[in-house]
Design a protein around this nucleic acid. Structure first.
Lengths: 125, 125
DNA sequence: CAGTATCCATACCGATACTG
DNA sequence: CAGTATCGGTATGGATACTG
């Protein structure tokens, strides 16, 4: 589509594909969204993003940090304290993503109705 | 955030989370994007969304149809002809998603720089 | 607290073959 | 053409235990 718009996400080898996957992946979007309110510590984030495991949160944060969307601030105290916050670029992207999330949330009634209709039509087969 | 919202995607059990996953999933986004130009038949879509298998396209379309984002128009002819097109809600969401994709692509230089910096810092460990 | 390491179930997904 | 059914490798990701 739109060959004139440099729409290369459709290309498998494009590096933007992986970043987009980090952003829109199962935990990436929720993590970015959670950080929009301000910086959070590891376990605060874990409680906020309901259902994420330590492993997945750790992996997600590393990917986002690597892509320059999240900044990791570690203090060499004991016990350790690490704060995560969005970079300016991360904030921009998170806000865009949150817009999408809000849009989906705002239309959930409609989605739920569509599902009911779909089940009704399929259920009679 | 925004506890007054009826659907909170951050909650594990919220149905909006599954819809968001259909939209942002590996093939969901590309499928919605491909349909932004207008309705397409199954095999047209398959060629357009490069790399998708019949099975995945079928599953993706069913999920999107079930959520009311895509409309399936089947004609009982022989050979069969089925057209897929975005619903108004699907179009709204697809456009929002496209905005996100473009934003990420526009920032890829910055992302690539961040990755280089990250590798440099980690590589010395 | 903030992670890492390991094990292992299962969900995902591509290939193939088949149906209407 | 427009799918469905099945198989099997692979990646994902949860649970648990452990380290600094």
């Amino acid at each position: 589509m739109d060959e004139d718009l440099a729409f290369d996400v459709f290309a498998k080898s494009c590096p933007s594909r992986s970043t987009l996957e980090h952003v829109t992946g199962r935990w990436g979007g929720l993590t970015l969204g959670a950080l929009l309110d301000g910086s959070l510590r590891f376990n605060e984030l874990r409680r906020r993003v309901d259902g994420v495991s330590e492993k997945m949160l750790s992996q997600t944060l590393q990917a986002l940090e690597r892509d320059g969307l999240v900044h990791r601030e570690a203090q060499p105290t004991n016990p350790p304290r690490v704060d995560y916050e969005l970079t300016p670029m991360g904030r921009e992207i998170a806000e865009r993503l949150l817009g999408l999330i809000r849009l989906v949330e705002g239309r959930m009634d409609e989605v739920l109705q569509a599902r009911t209709r779909y089940e009704a039509a399929r259920g009679s087969l």
